[in-house]
Nucleic acid binder design. Structure first.
Lengths: 197, 197
DNA sequence: TAATTTACTGTATATAATTACAGTATATGA
DNA sequence: TCATATACTGTAATTATATACAGTAAATTA
């Protein structure tokens, strides 16, 4: 977002906050009311400026037809921290992480039980983001089903059959035999850990 | 979401998809057009039914004044998988994870460099979600600044001073001396790992 | 079997909302 | 210094939108 004036930043924040709070953007009149403009056209003019500068997009003729441009939403990712600068200073922001970095890929989450994947940095109670898939390549971490059990393991297949391998030396490999029902439910594509402290 | 009819589900999906695609909900007329209703009132009636059943909320008098109820958005968290059921069957869904499970707490992300926190299950390139804070309790994982360096470590303080401890035996504790500038930038509250496979 | 819910069409209207036009005043860049 | 941008007030008109009312018909529930 390039060179917004203080007032334009205020208008932008009002729009953003309204979307977060209500799920839809404000009207010109609502913006004007919040910022104590006596004319709706003040809001309209600011919107035009924000469009021109690429902070938002307009859908002409639509009520509340304001889109926040993707890079302006989400959470900042701090890259290299410049000497002496506050950590969240604009020059330190590498990019903006979408509201959910895993959102596009993840079909569902599974909560991890046990410590069988601890060497892969996957701890108990982590949320594993899973993408639906019926197939996997050797070495990939998969959500697999053996009969009625669903488990998270590394997947290997060779001429002897399917082997599911834990990332913890205390666990033995699981060899799937011909009598068992086996299917891959999905691929682990990411993890989320809440409550780190 | 309780007992929506097939048609109500369709209308709900249209609303949800519109919000995802455009950033704001559709009008009655837009819903009607998408679903080939010849009367806008068909959409209006469905909206009333969806409100009654708790799938959405209405903001009366507001254009596009439709809110998706929180539990209806986001990504399903699969709990115990019932015997024989498809993994994502409704009875297996424990709850719905908000679009970003860390969103409320995280002020910014830091990308992890190095393996100093590997024993805490924090790997290189993980995104650590950080909450602004100037203080920490002993044992908490913090983002700290020593002179110009920003680092992620476990924080300890006693009468001898501040000690920053890695979660990796190959790293020595960092003892902060009086001549150095030291500050806590924030507390690690979660992690996100993309590209697991 | 009667009442209610679902699932619409069709009409109408008040109001919500966008957006253009006409100004004023100050600040900034070329 | 002259054009352009910023930052508004104020008015007005067109159109976008919500929403009520009057129906019809079939399915569901009590």
């Amino acid at each position: 977002m390039i060179n917004l004036t203080n007032q334009q930043i205020k208008v932008f924040e009002v729009i953003k906050d309204h979307v977060v709070a209500n799920g839809f953007p404000p009207t010109r009149a609502e913006i004007a009311k919040i910022l104590n403009f006596k004319s709706v056209n003040a809001a309209e003019s600011h919107i035009k400026a924000l469009v021109k500068k690429g902070a938002i997009e307009k859908v002409p003729g639509s009520s509340r037809g304001i889109k926040l441009v993707e890079e302006t939403t989400g959470i900042p990712l701090i890259g290299k921290v410049a000497a002496g600068s506050p950590i969240t200073a604009i020059e330190n922001i590498e990019k903006t992480i979408p509201v959910n970095p895993l959102n596009k890929l993840v079909d569902f989450f599974l909560r991890v039980e046990g410590d069988s994947m601890i060497n892969a940095g996957i701890l108990e109670n982590d949320l594993v983001g899973v993408k639906h898939s019926k197939v996997a390549e050797n070495g990939q971490i998969v959500v697999a089903r053996i009969d009625e059990d669903v488990t998270l393991k590394r997947f290997y297949k060779d001429n002897k059959g399917v082997r599911l391998v834990a990332e913890n030396n205390n666990y033995k490999d699981i060899l799937v035999n011909e009598q068992q029902f086996f299917s891959i439910e999905g691929l682990a594509v990411g993890i989320v850990r809440e409550n780190l402290n």
